[in-house]
Each structure stands twice: as C-alpha cells, then as structure tokens.
C-alpha cells in the first residue's frame, strides 16, 4: 500500500562535498520498504524545483520510524535537499516500485557504482538474513567517492575499485578479479550508471546467471500515471516506476 505522508528531517550526514545521507522521521507509522524500492521526495522551500525527486531508499527502520536516502548533489533539487535542517517537514510518497528478488542460498554479488550504492546495504542485510552469502563491490572514481561504514563489513564481504587506484583495485568494477577469473556467484545485483550495469549484464549472460539491475530514470509521478519514465523492453515500453526500477536485464532491449 503506497501513501503520501509527512516526515521530519532528523539529520543530513555529509559524506563528501557532494554526497550525503538524509534521515527522516515519520509522522505516522513507517511502512517497511524492500531493497530496491524508492520514494518520491518533495523538495521543500525551492520554488524553482517543481517536481518531487525519485530517490532509492537507503535504509528503513519501521521500529524507529525512520527512513533514509543516499543522495548525490546533481542539480537544484538535490542541492536544496542537502541544506535541509533538522525538524523541516518533507512530504514523501512511498514505497514505490518493485524490489530485488532475495535468494535464500549461495554466493551472490552486489555491485554499486556512484550513488548506486544506495540500496546495497539494505539488500545485503536482507540476503544474509535469508541465507545467502553477499559479496559486495563498490566502485568510484577515487577514494573520496567511497563511503563504507562498519555496517557494510558486518554483513558482506567488501571489495572496492577506484578508477585512479586511490583505494582498492585500480580500474572499474568490471576490472575486479571477482568479475573475471574468480567469478563464482549465483546472481548479480547492481545499481549505478547504465554503462556499468550493461557491462555486468554481459558478464552475467556469459556466466549463465541472472543479473538484476535497478534503473534510474526521469520521472514526473513515480506511480504509473504519467508514462514518462519508460525503458525499452523485449515487450515494448515499460514504466521504470511501476514495472521496475529493478529489471532482470535479459528483459531489457539492447542490454
């Protein structure tokens, strides 16, 4: 059941000059969000920003009544969001979209690139709880892009790649040995830039495993009313907001 409801800002944790985690407290009981689902978040006090912003849910704790988002400043909306103060009211429509499917056994690979790391901690927690063995690769341009807390290490075997080699394996996530000779996984879960996810999809196909990718797209509504956020699938145009954001990549055309 989706709803539109008010939250209050608890805090904005700045991870770097352009990346932050925003934590919100519900004014009503918080609905449990599944890994990969997203929310349409209002940007208050910014007349130039007309639409809500679709954001992948980073964390959700119905007991504490909180929800959090991992955000990178890319425009006016996210810039304003980074300046929100504790106590400010933010309207949120959630939970939206489908979610990653949870395997109950075997080694699984989670790959997050850039802000695509957003749903990965929740996903790893869920997978581990279900009985799978999560291994995660986080990729960025440099060490400054990588923000891994103890919570990640507690739940998954962690690996890092940076393009400049300042942390972990030098190169892109697909240069990591785990995606080459050491590949030994039942499934790939990924979220990040399209070229990265397409490369992972190709590897999954070659290895004969399923690749689930969470797509990002420009949306007006987030719940299937506007038909703006389409992706071309083997079955025609589908809305990323309702049929996704998570897709088995074999279903996507030209992947």
């Amino acid at each position: 059941m989706k709803k539109v409801t008010d939250f209050h800002v608890v805090e904005v944790q700045h991870l770097s000059h352009d990346t932050f985690i925003i934590v919100l407290q519900g004014t009503e009981p918080v609905i449990a969000v599944l890994p990969g689902q997203f929310a349409e978040v209002e940007v208050p006090g910014s007349p130039e920003v007309f639409l809500r912003r679709p954001l992948s849910v980073h964390g959700c704790d119905p007991v504490a009544g909180t929800i959090s988002f991992y955000v990178k400043v890319v425009g006016k909306g996210t810039a304003r969001m980074s300046e929100l103060l504790p106590g400010e009211k933010v309207s949120v429509i959630y939970p939206l979209g489908n979610h990653f499917t949870i395997l109950e056994e075997g080694r699984v690979l989670l790959v997050g690139g850039g802000t695509g790391v957003a749903p990965m901690l929740m996903l790893a927690n869920k997978l581990k709880k279900a009985g799978a063995e999560p291994v995660m690769i986080i990729g960025g341009r440099s060490a400054a892009d990588i923000h891994i807390s103890d919570a990640y290490h507690a739940v998954a075997e962690m690996h890092v790649t940076t393009e400049d080699g300042s942390l972990g394996v030098k190169g892109r996530v697909t240069d990591h040995p785990l995606l080459k000779e050491e590949f030994n996984f039942n499934r790939i879960y990924t979220c990040g830039p399209d070229p990265m996810m397409k490369a992972l999809s190709a590897i999954a196909r070659e290895k004969g495993v399923v690749c689930e990718a969470s797509l990002e797209n420009t949306m007006a509504c987030g719940f299937g009313a506007c038909l703006c956020c389409v992706v071309k699938t083997t079955d025609g145009h589908k809305c990323v907001c309702t049929e996704g954001p998570v897709f088995d990549t074999t279903y996507l055309e030209n992947w």
Binding site: E48, F50, L51, T218, A220, C228, C229
Partner: peptide, 9 residues
Amino acid sequence: YPRMAETPA
C-alpha cells in the same frame, strides 16, 4: 525516452 523535462513552474 526522454519524454519529460522539468521547467520553471
């Protein structure tokens, strides 16, 4: 796609 562009107001 793309089918949507946000504009002022």
